[in-house]
């Protein structure tokens, strides 16, 4: 006890430094206090408040939430076929986006990681990453102009063949969301393929496997967790979108657009609707956990 008091204390900073050096727990507490308090209050508190609000009802006259516990909002959602349809449609769109992104992204990632010569690899990755930095809205806007019925770029390309573009709607939303989240699929898969040693592929070839067999039996199983990791992003980001569907979705409704359309008039209902994607994500993550993909995130 006396050791601390006897030690020479040349300055206050020095004293504090020594004090902290001797107490790792105090250092830890000092590091953690502000960020944890912030996240717990501002974010976790907010989520909790949202969950609570979803059990409230709304006063018809004032549009203000009434704090009395009820399951009315959830009952409204699951007893109304229109809302159930919106939920199913949203999940279907998110799933299609994930599948298309995996089908487009995996060969691209393989091409960068294993086919392109080493010195071109950095450039290729940069080419894939750059659109991540282009504004989200600009990319949605780009597809609005691409898919515009009759006068859009896609229509211009297809018209000579007697075809018309998809126009605005579910297909347009799926294309646009795939476009937005594609880099989130390519990057984890590329990282996974980069970790896969070339010697393994050579060994497969030495044992007599042709390219197709090597891809199917060696590359795909090893890169599968990375694809699943990428799918967490593409799925979650598509599930919670409400902007794209407003711009290129015509009258299509998704979970997000229902929340966006109702939060000013009926906050408890919007909160209940917003709880649905949380539950879907928790289920999705629980399934994903089994593949071990979360460790490589």
């Amino acid at each position: 006890m006396t050791a601390v008091q006897d030690a020479p204390v040349p300055s206050r900073a020095m004293g504090l430094s020594t004090w902290l050096y001797r107490r790792p727990r105090a250092r830890l507490a000092a590091l953690l206090a502000a960020p944890v308090l912030w996240l717990a209050l501002a974010y976790f508190g907010a989520l909790f408040l949202l969950l609570m609000t979803s059990f409230y009802t709304v006063d018809d006259f004032t549009s203000l939430p009434v704090r009395a516990f009820s399951l009315d909002n959830y009952q409204t959602i699951f007893s109304n076929p229109a809302y159930v349809k919106v939920i199913l449609r949203t999940v279907a769109i998110a799933a299609s986006v994930t599948v298309v992104a995996a089908l487009l992204g995996t060969p691209m990632a393989f091409f960068i990681a294993k086919v392109v010569p080493q010195r071109w690899r950095g450039l290729m990755v940069a080419l894939v990453v750059t659109p991540l930095w282009a504004s989200y809205l600009v990319k949605v806007y780009a597809w609005k102009t691409m898919l515009q019925p009759d006068t859009g770029v896609v229509a211009w390309l297809l018209n000579p063949f007697g075809l018309s573009g998809p126009g605005y709607g579910v297909v347009a939303v799926t294309i646009t969301l795939t476009y937005l989240w594609l880099p989130f699929m390519i990057l984890p898969v590329y990282a996974g393929l980069e970790r896969l040693p070339d010697s393994m592929l050579d060994a497969s070839a030495d044992l007599g496997a042709r390219t197709g067999r090597t891809l199917r039996s060696v590359v795909l199983p090893l890169v599968y967790p990375s694809i699943v990791a990428g799918s967490v992003f593409t799925f979650s980001l598509s599930l919670g979108d409400y902007i794209t569907v407003q711009i290129v979705g015509s009258k299509t409704q998704m979970l997000g657009s229902v929340v966006y359309g109702s939060y000013t008039t009926d906050l408890p209902f919007a909160a209940a609707m917003a709880t649905v994607p949380i539950v879907i994500m928790v289920v999705y993550l629980a399934i994903v956990r089994r593949t071990g993909a979360l460790d490589s995130l």
Binding site: A46, S236, L239, D241, A274
Partner: peptide, 17 residues
């Protein structure tokens, strides 16, 4: 969590708070 959860959830939760 703020990035992993769907955007609309984070948006509405923060607005409420």
């Amino acid at each position: 969590l703020p990035l992993a959860l769907p955007g609309i959830v984070t948006a509405l939760a923060l607005r409420t708070a």
